[in-house]
Nucleic acid binder design. Structure first.
Lengths: 160, 160
DNA sequence: GTTACTATACTCGGATAAAGACTGTCCGAGTCCGTACGG
DNA sequence: CCGTACGGACTCGGACAGTCTTTATCCGAGTATAGTAAC
C-alpha cells in the first residue's frame, strides 16, 4: 500500500502553475526545472492531469500546460484520482465464497462481504477527507508560513 | 495505490479461527483449504500476523496457529498494519526544497510541507476509521446476515 | 505398570524464483510562430 | 503597406526499457508426539 510519488509532483506543479501567474502556457521543461524532475516522466504525469481535466494543454510553439480552473475548484481528491486512477484501493476477491463458503446459502453470499464493507468504510473516510481539502486551502497554508512564495517563484523563473 | 490481497486473507482467516472454535492449533493447510488458497503463501501472511502478535504459532506435530486474543481486541487497523507494514502510504520526498525551493528562506522549509500535511490528514482519517472497527464488529455483521455461519464452518471442517 | 528414551512425522520459518506495477526514457505527429513573398 | 503562404522549430502524446515491490513457491530447522524398551 504505497501512494505513487506522482501525486506529490502533480500537487506541487498545480500550485506552481498558480503561483507563476503566467498568461502563456508553461511547457513541461520549465515546470520540471522548478523541481529538478526528469522532464519526460513529469510530462507523463501531466498527461494524466489533462485526461482528468485539471489542466489544459496547448501544442506547438509557445505551447504548454495551463490550469483548467482556479485552485478553489480543485480538491486533493481530484489530484489523487487523476494520478492513481479511480478504482478503489481495496478490492474484494470474494474468497469467502470459496471452500467453506460453498456450503453457505446463496442468500448469505448475496449480502456484501463484511470485511469488504469495513475496508470500504475506512476508504470512504479517506476520500471524504481528501475531497474536503482544496488546493486553495493548501496554497493558503503555504502562504501562512511563507507569504513571499509567489514573489520567490516568479523571481526564480524570471532568471531561469 | 493498491492494498494487497493479503489483508483480505488475514481478516477472513482470523474470523475463521474464531468461528472454528477449536482447542487445538490450526495448521496452515487446514486454513488454506477453507478458502482454496495456496498454503505456502498463506503461511507467509500468517507469519506476519505472528510478528504483529495477532496470532500465536505452535511448532511440531499437532501444531498450527491460534488467536492471540479475542476478536473484540483486534481492530481492522491491526490487521492492515500487520500485513502492509506500519509506514505511511504517502511519503513526502520534499521536492519543494529542490529547484525553486532552494531560493526559499530556511525558515519556510523548516515548516512541514503543506501538501504532505493534507495527505497525512486524510490518511489519519483512514486509520482512525479502521481502528474504530474491531473484528468482533465484522463478525457480528456477518452473523446478522448469516446466523448459522459458525455451524456451517464447523460442519465443513468436520468433513474435511 | 510406570518412566525414560528414541525415532518419526509433522509444523513453522525464512530463503529463493516469477510476475506485475511503477519509474524512467525516447521519438514521432501535430501545431503555432516567424519570415518571405506577392499583391 | 498589407495579406497570405510556407518553412522551421517547438511542444505534446503515446510507445518502449529498467527497476522495484508484490506474489508465489520451496525446502530446511525445530518440536511435540507416539512407540519402544528398560526398570
Amino acid at each position: 500500500m504505497r501512494i505513487g510519488e506522482g501525486v506529490e509532483w502533480a500537487a506541487h506543479c498545480l500550485l506552481m502553475l498558480d503561483w507563476m501567474g503566467e498568461d502563456r502556457p508553461v511547457p513541461t521543461a520549465r515546470l520540471a526545472a522548478g523541481f529538478e524532475l526528469p522532464p519526460p516522466y513529469l510530462n507523463k504525469q501531466l498527461q494524466a492531469l489533462v485526461k482528468a481535466g485539471l489542466v489544459t494543454s496547448t501544442a506547438g510553439a509557445r505551447g504548454g500546460f495551463r490550469l483548467a480552473r482556479p485552485l478553489e475548484k480543485i480538491t486533493m481528491m481530484d489530484v489523487v484520482a487523476a494520478i492513481e486512477g479511480p478504482e478503489e484501493a481495496f478490492q474484494c476477491t470474494e474468497i469467502r465464497s470459496r471452500g467453506v463458503g460453498a456450503d453457505s446459502p446463496a442468500s448469505a453470499l448475496r449480502r456484501p462481504c463484511a470485511v469488504s464493507t469495513a475496508m470500504r468504510k475506512a476508504e470512504l473516510a479517506w476520500r471524504r477527507a481528501l475531497a474536503e481539502q482544496t488546493l486553495a486551502d493548501v496554497s493558503a497554508a503555504v502562504k501562512r508560513g511563507a507569504p513571499e512564495i509567489e514573489e520567490t517563484v516568479r523571481a526564480w523563473y524570471a532568471r531561469n
